[in-house]
């Protein structure tokens, strides 16, 4: 009985909502701390951080947990909403809901759906480009070229055997460059690119160069875009407002669901929850605002 009770019962659904919700709150904190580097740090540190986040195995596990939590939280939430709608097949002609509950608490499903839409958009904007976009910019640097002029080159990571690599006018390694190297080395170096940033020799698999994706650039580009930058900034701020409302009810609600309440504890949780619900989304929202309006 206990097993099915912990999966199916109405109370168990609350536990799962609470657990996944609180885990996602933790994720928010981590994510926020990383992102704040966009304001308080520089491009290099931010991109190094992005590299760490995409390569570290522990982070990998955490990220999968986050995905699972999001999916579970959403699916469970949808399930709850459907069941709850069914619990009242005929509605009231007149409802004065605001007399007894807050707007946020009544609209968690709507808020949650909006957040889900945001997450998808957000991942398309950044995560998907990072992972799949052939045109994902690489971190580049201007160095003194052999002819005394300046030259833009890709900058290698610490693991990279070569510190720099040539790039074309698009900021990519480009087929022409790779062809040229092949020709120049008489076919000794038949280079190809994998994972968007790693240049290796097809002949023996030797890695020649490991570049770094320039997440910083695409972030700044998005919010500084002449045409869409303002819209993107506005939408991100709006999304954070939605998140704030979701957290305003969700944070303390999770503790109630878990039964973590007491005369002393509950007021603290409620105050902390409110602060969390305002502060975290506000700081998130500050980043695009800073980039769009203040970053030179």
């Amino acid at each position: 009985m206990a097993k099915s009770a912990l999966l199916k019962s109405s109370i168990a659904k609350k536990y799962w909502m609470a657990l996944t919700g609180l885990f996602l709150c933790l994720f928010l904190v981590g994510h926020l701390l990383g992102n704040l580097q966009l304001i308080f740090s520089d491009a290099k540190h931010f991109n190094d951080y992005a590299l760490f986040m995409t390569t570290n195995p522990a982070v990998k596990i955490l990220s999968y947990l986050t995905y699972i939590s999001i999916i579970f939280h959403a699916v469970d939430g949808i399930l709850l909403t459907v069941q709850n709608k069914a619990a009242r097949p005929v509605g009231y002609a007149k409802v004065n809901a605001s007399a007894s509950s807050s707007l946020a608490s009544r609209n968690m499903a709507v808020l949650g759906t909006l957040i889900l839409v945001f997450i998808v958009t957000h991942m398309a904007n950044f995560w998907a480009r990072m992972h799949f976009d052939e045109n994902m910019p690489i971190v580049v640097k201007e160095i003194n070229g052999g002819m005394g002029g300046k030259q833009r080159v890709a900058v290698g990571t610490k693991e990279s055997p070569n510190p720099y690599f040539q790039i074309d006018e698009n900021g990519r390694f480009g087929t022409k460059i790779l062809e040229d190297i092949k020709t120049q080395s008489m076919g000794q170096y038949d280079l190809a690119v994998r994972d968007l940033t790693t240049v290796y020799n097809k002949k023996d698999g030797e890695v020649i160069f490991i570049g770094q994706k320039d997440l910083y650039k695409i972030t700044i580009d998005l919010f500084k875009d002449k045409k869409w930058g303002m819209a993107a900034t506005g939408l991100y701020v709006l999304a954070m407002l939605v998140l704030a409302f979701h957290l305003l009810h969700g944070f303390q609600s999770a503790f109630q669901s878990m039964g973590v309440t007491s005369r002393k504890l509950t007021p603290i949780i409620k105050t902390f929850g409110t602060a969390f619900a305002i502060l975290v989304p506000a700081l998130f929202a500050a980043i695009p605002v800073y980039i769009h309006f203040f970053l030179k």
Binding site: A86, S100, S101, S105
Partner: peptide
């Protein structure tokens, strides 16, 4: 066939 609690707190008020 009752619905699930989402901690809106309306019950306590009413």
């Amino acid at each position: 066939g009752f619905g699930n609690c989402t901690n809106t707190g309306a019950c306590e008020i009413e």
